[in-house]
Computed example of a mutant assay.
Amino acid sequence: MAALIAWVMVLAIAAYACAGGTDYGAGFWDLLAGGAERGRRPRWLIDHAMEPVWETNNVWLIFVFVIMWTGFPRMFQAVFEAMWLPLALAAVGLVLRGAGFALRKPSRRLAQRRLYGAMFAISSLLTPFFLGAVLGGIAAGRVAVGINASADAWANPTSVLAGLLAIAATAFLGAVFLCCDARRFGADDLVGYFRLRALLAFCAVVVLALIGLPVTHNHARYVWEGLTGGLGLLLIALAAVCGLATVLLLLRRSYGWSRYTSVASVALTIGAWGFAQRPYVLPTSLTVAQAAGAAHTLRWLGIVTAIAIVLVGPALVLLYRLDTMGELEPLSDADTRAARAPGDTL
């Protein structure tokens, strides 16, 4: 039961990396869109593409934390003791990001829109970096039961590389999804705009992955060995194939299928990481069995998780399907129009 729930947690992390990652990637491109006039059209598309599902995507992160503190309390304690600072910064980024995105559109003052837009964009850059840094520190074996918080736990080569990879991967996902959304919203001028950025982001992922080879070998040896053999290597190879397939689909302008291949490339990479560090949840100090909670707790957690999958899973699949088909219309400017005050700038 403990091993099964651990794999459910890995799948939930993969779901958040893919679903929430598209949102972080959109925020990354929002940050680089340029000034108010030059960035108006890309930001308009980002707002309209994210509105129907961006709050739903954060459900996966909550699901991960619930499974961790209920099913693996020793792991939860160790991670939050050693990594409280990057996790706190990621949480602050989540709050500011949501506030900035929600308040930017109804704001009528240009200065306010710029402030909220900066909050949204910068937080979309910092949050995935710190979450990736936490995973990198875990993979490098910098987290163990009884270890106190220190900068070494998350400000090490593996953590920094994992944080940068998280930014690049989310930027890649976001740009691929925005290519499809540009066609869906009839913004043909933005299809090529985001296609170029998707290709550039993929190149960044490849470069960081190549840099990561010696870094992982030297600083996360156990995970390195898992990624270079067995199922870990197979999943990494499949992830690379899916990434290359995404590039070919983008070049052929097959944007619909590129969504699925880009998601598969990121999800398979997360799965490879899970296989690489088994049977440990904290390499090489805490196994899944050692971290697991009481047997009756795991049984109830398994039952509740199964019920949640049966009841909530189909609803989430339907929601994402309706969104990709363009059936969920975002709020119009008239729907969110706030009362204007003297001096407001449209």
Rank of each mutant, 00 (worst) to 15 (best):
F65T: 05
T56R: 08
A91L: 15
V59D: 02
M75D: 06
F80C: 05
I67Y: 03
F72D: 04
A82R: 03
V95S: 09
A91Y: 10
P52T: 00
F65Y: 11
G93P: 11
P73A: 01
L85W: 13
F76R: 08
M83D: 09
W60N: 05
L94W: 08
F72H: 11
L94E: 07
E51Q: 14
N58F: 10
V53N: 01
L87M: 14
F80H: 13
I62T: 10
I67N: 01
L61C: 07
Q77G: 13
A91K: 07
F80Q: 08
V95E: 10
F63K: 01
W84C: 09
A49Y: 09
L89I: 15
I67S: 04
A90W: 11
D47L: 09
A78N: 10
I67M: 07
R74M: 12
L94G: 09
D47F: 12
E55L: 05
V53S: 00
F72A: 11
L85D: 04
M83G: 09
F65V: 14
F80D: 03
V59M: 02
L87Q: 06
E81R: 15
A78C: 11
G71T: 11
E51I: 03
W69E: 07
V95H: 07
W60I: 02
L94F: 13
T70G: 02
P52G: 00
V79R: 01
A78T: 08
P86E: 00
P73Q: 04
V79Y: 06
F63Y: 12
N57A: 04
L61K: 04
A78H: 10
L94K: 06
W69C: 09
M50N: 12
M50C: 11
A90P: 15
A90Y: 09
